[in-house]
Nucleic acid binder design. Structure first.
Lengths: 144, 144
DNA sequence: CTCATTGCAAAGGATTTGCACTAAT
DNA sequence: ATTAGTGCAAATCCTTTGCAATGAG
């Protein structure tokens, strides 16, 4: 279930770091890396259950941490009170647009932000590391 | 303690909405509205205690909600795992710059963002409501 | 065989809620 | 008098941790 190529990168990462390659880790990685939504830890667990695989909550969180450290997954915080995880998929930095009615998430890129935030940071004596922009609005479907 | 003028606006709001004007509400409002930092609920409670006023945790949270609804206070989420509250002080929308070492927060404004986010939202079929931009970096002091 | 991972349940931190009690209007 | 607010403790939600059992290398 799932494209083996997506989890291969994680298995390689684990081996090169002398970390055990376990069934649970590969299962979590497969769910997150092959999803195209931004999943919460709970959603990951539910999807695993849906596949008949049962992975403990603690292991899901622990594996998500490893995935984030590996760089294969990016952590997101949309201010919902919990975190979401998204496959990095080699996709460059991008911003999010969230529907405040249904929660639908759209993504976009704007290279100007990189430059703009660097300049603003400098002007305040900071050295920029990263930025996060989230736009809240109502999607077309919810205005139907 | 504290400038009565800052809490007057809140008292007026409460009366105009037929909500009881209580000592606790005014105390919480005074702490948040006269602070120039972004306070967490716990910090608000600590400051109240420092003034010799004791307000229950639940009441602090409940009052912060009312303050946010009144528009006098704005809620912030810097991804720390808890919320912060900032006086709106008639200040227009602004963005935040956060030092990832010491947590120091700087603020800035950029009117271009308003227009830019509106256009991006439109391009994706959304009607923009608001946006939030946070830049993470290291401040001058922490590099010193 | 050895050491890291797993699962479960308990612990944690932030925030909310139920409820008897008190205060505002 | 009414009605809403208050404090406390219990409950909730998301996440982390302790620990004995298990599995990878």
């Amino acid at each position: 279930m799932g494209d083996p190529r997506v989890t291969d990168a994680f298995a390689t990462y684990l081996r090169s770091h002398n970390l055990p390659v376990t069934e649970q880790r590969l299962a979590v990685a497969d769910v997150v890396l092959s999803a195209d939504e931004h999943l919460s830890a709970e959603e990951v667990e539910t999807r695993l259950a849906g596949r008949g695989v049962s992975v403990g909550t603690a292991t899901v969180y622990r594996t998500l941490d490893v995935l984030v450290k590996s760089g294969l997954v990016v952590e997101r915080d949309f201010g919902e009170g919990f975190r979401r995880f998204e496959s990095a998929r080699g996709m460059p930095h991008h911003e999010h647009l969230i529907c405040t009615v249904c929660g639908q998430v759209a993504e976009f890129r704007d290279e100007r932000l990189e430059r703009m935030t660097t300049l603003v940071a400098e002007a305040h004596g900071y050295v920029r590391q990263r930025h996060r922009l989230v736009i809240y609005g109502v999607c077309a479907k919810c205005r139907g």
